[in-house]
């Protein structure tokens, strides 16, 4: 068992937790303004694809990152327009956006790269790994914390930033107000829609980064449906963390650990089917213990009439 649980497991946890955490923070922002963002999955997938596309076109990871953020922001704008402006059911729109992302990425994969299934090009470089001076020299800790892509650090940095913004600033205060009682916020003259759009677009940018970490951080390739439900797990992480950045970080790390563990176990004699099940099973089990009531309000009307 020692070989299963060693320090490098924690290191790989940090790596795999980043996309989850980034997306979950996006979900949390949306939840704060009262929007249940089921489209995280599709946005993340779009991010993963556009990051590879940007990398291929510009030959520069930073431009690729920027490109991914812009693309997903556009998708999130669409989500926002339909659910905020046209007042369509956010869950239905979210599901539709997920379809669109699956179809569009597969289509563009063929249209641009002329391949199906997955695209990989040796000449592409992924995100750099940064070592943190001083910390990298500490034994064990350095091994775990140092040597990650900038997005991993960004994800954790954002937790602190968002925690501050949401609970200490005027902006965050108003954002929370909009989510808690939109009618009251509107009667005060707050521009409710503007805050909602802002949160949705920010979640898009975060999902763009999350996708980029998937396709440029862990590996340097894009595969159809490579998010494999991570967007939904991020959604659960959002709910479990009560849309509170620190809470979201905690729950994301739990799922990240499961993800890392599942990767690790594949080297052992357990059939991969079961090791791959681990994150999903864990998510369900964790949901047993942490209940979320807010979704009930949102899922009220779905019959579509």
């Amino acid at each position: 068992m020692e070989a299963i649980l060693d320090w490098s497991l924690l290191s790989s946890m940090f790596r795999v937790v980043a996309p989850l955490l980034l997306a979950a923070l996006g979900g949390a922002l949306c939840a704060r303004v009262g929007i249940f963002n089921v489209a995280l999955e599709g946005m993340m997938l779009t991010g993963a694809f556009s990051a590879i596309l940007g990398n291929y076109w510009f030959g520069n990871v930073w431009l690729a990152l920027l490109f991914a953020c812009l693309c997903v922001a556009a998708v999130s704008l669409l989500f926002g327009y339909l659910s905020i402006h046209l007042q369509a059911n956010a869950i239905v729109v979210g599901v539709a956006i997920n379809f669109l992302a699956t179809g569009l990425t597969a289509f563009c994969l063929f249209a641009v790269f002329n391949v199906k299934g997955q695209f990989y090009d040796k000449s592409m470089t992924g995100l750099p790994k940064w070592n943190i001076p001083l910390i990298q020299d500490i034994p064990v800790v350095g091994q775990i914390i140092s040597g990650h892509t900038p997005l991993v650090y960004a994800a954790f940095l954002l937790v602190g930033v968002l925690q501050y913004v949401l609970f200490k600033t005027v902006l965050g205060f108003r954002l929370n107000a909009v989510g808690e009682n939109p009618a009251a916020a509107k009667s005060l003259g707050l521009r409710v829609r503007r805050y909602q759009y802002g949160a949705v677009i920010a979640s898009g940018v975060l999902c763009g980064l999350a996708g980029a970490q998937l396709s440029l951080g862990q590996v340097t390739l894009f595969a159809e449906n490579m998010t494999a439900g991570r967007g939904f797990i991020a959604l659960v992480a959002t709910m479990l963390g009560q849309s509170n950045p620190l809470g979201v970080m905690g729950s994301s790390m739990l799922f990240g650990l499961m993800d890392a563990l599942s990767n690790r176990l594949q080297g052992f004699s357990v059939p991969t089917h079961f090791t791959m099940m681990l994150p999903y099973v864990m998510t369900i089990i964790v949901m047993l213990f942490f209940k979320d009531k807010s979704y009930l309000r949102q899922s009220g009307r779905i019959a579509g009439k």
Binding site: F173, A177, E180, A183, A184, S187, L188, G189
Partner: peptide, 20 residues
């Protein structure tokens, strides 16, 4: 009432013109 139940009294009163 157009109030935010989970906010404090002061927060409810100053919202929209918060001291910074």
């Amino acid at each position: 009432f157009m109030l935010f139940p989970s906010f404090t009294v002061a927060e409810n009163i100053v919202i929209g013109r918060e001291p910074r």
